[in-house]
């Protein structure tokens, strides 16, 4: 039995979810599974069963850190981390609110800064994250100051010659 979701995830991730025989090695090795509701193995099963709504309402797909432990250990060669990316893209396209709001916010801010400057810029991004996230404002302020006094968060972004090309990449990659 294959849901439409399988086809969509396979297309976006370049993987074949149908090869999974649920050995659980991915879930056993996943470093963030403790914080997940289902874990990668069960998520793949839910994709096959077409449990779209439960998947996209869970926080699991937004907790994947892309460490590729699952991809390395899968006996069927499924890059499960890539399927999580596929699921995130479908979730966004369908208009779901991310189960880990601030994880998505981080990725959005990071890419927003890269689009604007061509490179990441910590001070800019961390400042925006502090303002926009639901993480308590004072969390990480001492660590941020620690980084700042060591000269590790330059306030002004480097102007790079590639930024025009980078903006073009962002435009052209939208299919």
């Amino acid at each position: 039995m294959n849901s439409n979701l399988v086809l969509e995830v396979d297309r976006l991730s370049g993987q074949q979810i149908g090869l999974c025989y649920h050995c659980h090695k991915c879930t056993a090795g996943c470093p963030v599974v403790d914080a997940m509701q289902y874990g990668p193995d069960l998520l793949l099963r839910m994709v096959a069963l077409g449990r779209d709504d439960a998947i996209f309402k869970s926080r699991d797909i937004w907790l994947c850190v892309g460490c590729y432990t699952c991809a390395t250990r899968c006996p069927n060669g499924i890059n499960i981390a890539a399927t999580m990316d596929g699921l995130r893209q479908i979730s966004l396209a369908r208009g779901y609110a991310a189960g880990e709001r601030d994880a998505l916010l981080f990725h959005r801010l990071f890419m927003g800064v890269v689009k604007r400057f061509g490179r990441s810029h910590e001070a800019f991004m961390l400042g925006l994250f502090k303002i926009l996230s639901k993480v308590p404002l004072m969390n990480d302020i001492p660590a941020g100051i620690g980084l700042f006094v060591r000269g590790k968060v330059p306030l002004l972004p480097a102007r790079i010659t590639a930024s025009a090309q980078v903006r073009q990449i962002f435009q052209r990659s939208k299919k």
Binding site: D85, V166, K174
Partner: peptide, 16 residues
Amino acid sequence: GWNCCGASSAHVFDHN
């Protein structure tokens, strides 16, 4: 003129 590699975030949104 090097640019950011996309790090842990670009692949979240778009494989290309």
